Structures are given as C-alpha cells and as structure tokens.
Amino acid sequence: MSAQRPPPRPAHRRHLPPQHAWIVFSGRADHAWQRLLRPGFRHCFAALEDAAGWMVLDPLSGRLLLARLAVPPGYDLPGFYRRAGLLPLGPYPLEEAALGAPLRGMPLNCVSICRAVLGPHAPFALTPAGLHRGLTRMNESRKKNLTMPKA
C-alpha cells in the first residue's frame, strides 16, 4: 500500500505575480446600524495592486464586489482615495500562502474580508476602527524594526 499524496495545488496559486494590498477606511454609513461604529471608521475594503493594475475587493451589504479597475498600472489609487476623503493604509505585501490562525468563528463582514486578504499576520479586530488601530501598531513596529541598528 502506498501513501496517498496530497492533491496538487491549483495552478493559479503557484504563479501569482507580486501583489500589495491597501486597506481603505471610510466614515460613510449606508445603514442606520453603521452609525453605532466610530465616526471615520464605519467601513473598510481592500485594494490590491499587481503588475496588471488595481483590483478592489469591497464587501457590500448582501454581496461581495470584486472589480478590476480601468486605470493604468502604476496609477496612484491610494492618493485618489485620500483626495476623496478616505483613509488608505499600506502597502502590505501579499506573500505565498502561509499557515496561520484561521478566521473560524468570525462574522463575515468588511473587517473579516480585509483580514483574510492580509493573511495570517493580520491583527485581530472586530470593527473597522479596531483594524485601523491594529494596522497602525503593526506599521509602527515595522518601522522600529527597520530603523533599529543591528548589534
């Protein structure tokens, strides 16, 4: 009896071009219940950049929007979002799939979708404000590690 091999990985996961994610925060409240969330942090979505351009992953009420934007590669989409009054954080490199804590038990909302995009190193959060706080801390510790002299 021979040992069973694991199934082959899908081809689309083997040859992904380098990608970077930006997490974009909005204060707009489309539903009354969103007004309970912190002003300025009532929704979040992900914008992914690769060699072909930009793709937006936006969990809307009742559906998940995935759109390739008709802008040229290299377009400053984070700058566009800033000018529109939104708050983009990033870029976060999206690396090859890594083992990490799964998102089991998490409600399916904008925060869990953004955490899933970032992968296993995403900070724990339940609200857009909590995700913003966690990403800001992560950015600060990353900057400290880059500027600390090596012994």
Score class of each variant (00 low, 15 high):
residue 82 R to M: 08
residue 82 R to P: 06
residue 82 R to F: 01
residue 82 R to Q: 14
residue 83 R to H: 14
residue 83 R to E: 13
residue 84 A to V: 00
residue 85 G to P: 08
residue 85 G to T: 07
residue 86 L to I: 00
residue 88 P to F: 07
residue 90 G to S: 09
residue 92 Y to I: 00
residue 92 Y to C: 05
residue 92 Y to K: 02
residue 93 P to G: 05
residue 93 P to V: 08
residue 94 L to H: 08
residue 94 L to E: 06
residue 94 L to P: 09
residue 94 L to T: 08
residue 94 L to F: 08
residue 95 E to Y: 13
residue 95 E to Q: 12
residue 95 E to W: 12
residue 95 E to P: 01
residue 96 E to A: 15
residue 96 E to R: 15
residue 96 E to S: 14
residue 96 E to K: 14
residue 97 A to T: 12
residue 98 A to F: 04
residue 98 A to Y: 01
residue 98 A to E: 15
residue 99 L to Q: 10
residue 99 L to H: 11
residue 99 L to F: 13
residue 99 L to D: 13
residue 99 L to N: 08
residue 100 G to R: 05
residue 100 G to P: 03
residue 100 G to M: 09
residue 100 G to N: 07
residue 101 A to Q: 15
residue 101 A to Y: 05
residue 101 A to W: 09
residue 101 A to E: 14
residue 102 P to D: 12
residue 102 P to L: 03
residue 104 R to M: 13
residue 104 R to Y: 12
residue 104 R to T: 14
residue 105 G to A: 11
residue 105 G to F: 12
residue 105 G to T: 08
residue 106 M to E: 15
residue 107 P to W: 01
residue 107 P to S: 12
residue 108 L to I: 12
residue 108 L to R: 14
residue 109 N to F: 11
residue 109 N to G: 09
residue 109 N to E: 04
residue 109 N to T: 11
residue 110 C to E: 04
residue 110 C to L: 03
residue 111 V to E: 03
residue 111 V to N: 00
residue 112 S to A: 14
residue 113 I to E: 04
residue 113 I to H: 10
residue 114 C to Y: 01
residue 114 C to Q: 03
residue 114 C to K: 03
residue 114 C to M: 06
residue 114 C to P: 02
residue 114 C to H: 06
residue 115 R to G: 05
residue 115 R to N: 10
residue 116 A to T: 08
residue 117 V to S: 10
residue 117 V to P: 09
residue 118 L to K: 09
residue 118 L to E: 07
residue 118 L to G: 10
residue 119 G to K: 05
residue 119 G to F: 05
residue 119 G to L: 02
residue 119 G to V: 08
residue 120 P to N: 04
residue 121 H to I: 00
residue 121 H to Q: 15
residue 121 H to S: 13
residue 121 H to L: 14
residue 121 H to V: 00
residue 122 A to C: 02
residue 123 P to T: 10
residue 123 P to M: 08
residue 123 P to W: 08
residue 123 P to Y: 07
residue 124 F to G: 07
residue 124 F to L: 15
residue 124 F to Q: 11
residue 125 A to W: 06
residue 125 A to S: 08
residue 125 A to I: 09
residue 126 L to A: 14
residue 127 T to K: 06
residue 127 T to G: 07
residue 127 T to C: 10
residue 128 P to W: 05
residue 128 P to T: 05
residue 128 P to C: 07
residue 129 A to S: 14
residue 130 G to Q: 15
residue 130 G to N: 01
residue 130 G to I: 01
residue 130 G to L: 00
residue 131 L to D: 01
residue 131 L to F: 07
residue 131 L to C: 10
residue 131 L to T: 06
residue 131 L to N: 02
